[in-house]
Simulated scan of single mutants.
Amino acid sequence: MSPYLIALFAIVEREAFRFLQQRERFVAALVRPLVWLLVFAAGFRAALGLSIIPPYQTYITYEVYIVPGLCGMILLFNGMQSSLSLVYDREMGSMRLLLTSPLPRWWLLFCKLTGGTLISIAQAYAFLAIAALFGIQMPWHGYLLAFPALLVAGLMLGALGLALSSFIKQLENFAGVMNFVIFPMFFLSSALYPLWKMAESSELLHDICALNPFTHGVELIRFALYGELNLPALGWTTLACAGFMALALWGYDPARGMIKRKG
């Protein structure tokens, strides 16, 4: 087998074992979106009326609208959590051991990113299954077509976490930075409110939400769950993923660290 595939399987397996040993992480990943779905949505349902907007063909309840956004929430939080483990591994020395592999650094980081993303997707599908038990169901083919959308969005958010972890040296600092990234990205997006609702309140907020990469990731998932491809969302999400990954590679470049020390 190719050394590249061996490294990929080994790192993904390591991420899976680590996840299975942290059952509270799985529970926490589901509690957050379920609270929004079952508690907050009940209160917002009467206050937020939703018109017919693509990909919906009829009027929908608020619970139906926020399901894709809550899938994005799972990907976002888990992407940051996975990157938090990178900071921990770097402090413990295991990250340094991994990066001494003869394989290219970009491939090792991609393997780490893939492992975290696959775990995020499994959690998102677990959430969709629970939502279906409460009567919030999508077209059956939407569950299949959502996989590539979840994969692209998960890679984008995981790459953002990688980029952040490359510039943060201490575990304590990363937790604080996460809060400054996660909550603005989540609330300034179309996860909880459609963009036209934002425009009614403030054109500036609408523009910020439209520029937010998380918005495009959520819309990619939303359309995929109804069997449709949102090409602009796919393009912007892929572009953001490439940009964040390039930033992460630059941050983990040992030559940059040498230059910085000499300066």
Rank of each mutant, 00 (worst) to 15 (best):
R14C: 07
R18G: 15
Q21P: 00
R23I: 08
E24R: 09
E24D: 13
R25T: 08
F26S: 09
L30N: 07
V31K: 01
V31T: 09
R32Q: 11
W36D: 10
L37M: 13
L37C: 11
L38S: 12
V39L: 12
F40S: 03
F40K: 03
G43P: 03
F44H: 06
A46Q: 13
L48H: 02
I53L: 10
I53S: 10
Y56K: 09
Y56D: 02
Q57L: 15
Q57P: 06
E63Q: 13
I66P: 02
M73I: 07
I74F: 07
L84F: 14
Y88I: 12
R90T: 08
T100P: 04
S101Q: 03
L109R: 05
F110G: 10
T114H: 00
S120W: 07
S120F: 11
I121A: 01
A126N: 06
A126Y: 09
L133A: 15
M138T: 02
Y143M: 07
L145S: 05
A149L: 08
L150F: 14
V152L: 14
A159K: 05
A163F: 11
L164G: 02
L164T: 06
F167R: 15
I168A: 11
E172A: 11
A175T: 15
G176D: 04
S189K: 01
S190P: 00
K197H: 08
L204H: 02
L205W: 14
L211C: 12
F214H: 03
V218A: 05
L229C: 00
L229G: 00
L234K: 05
L234E: 04
G235F: 15
G235E: 10
T238L: 15
T238M: 11
A240F: 03
A242Y: 11
A242G: 12
M245S: 11
Y252V: 05
D253W: 13
R261S: 02
K262I: 14
K262L: 13
G263M: 07
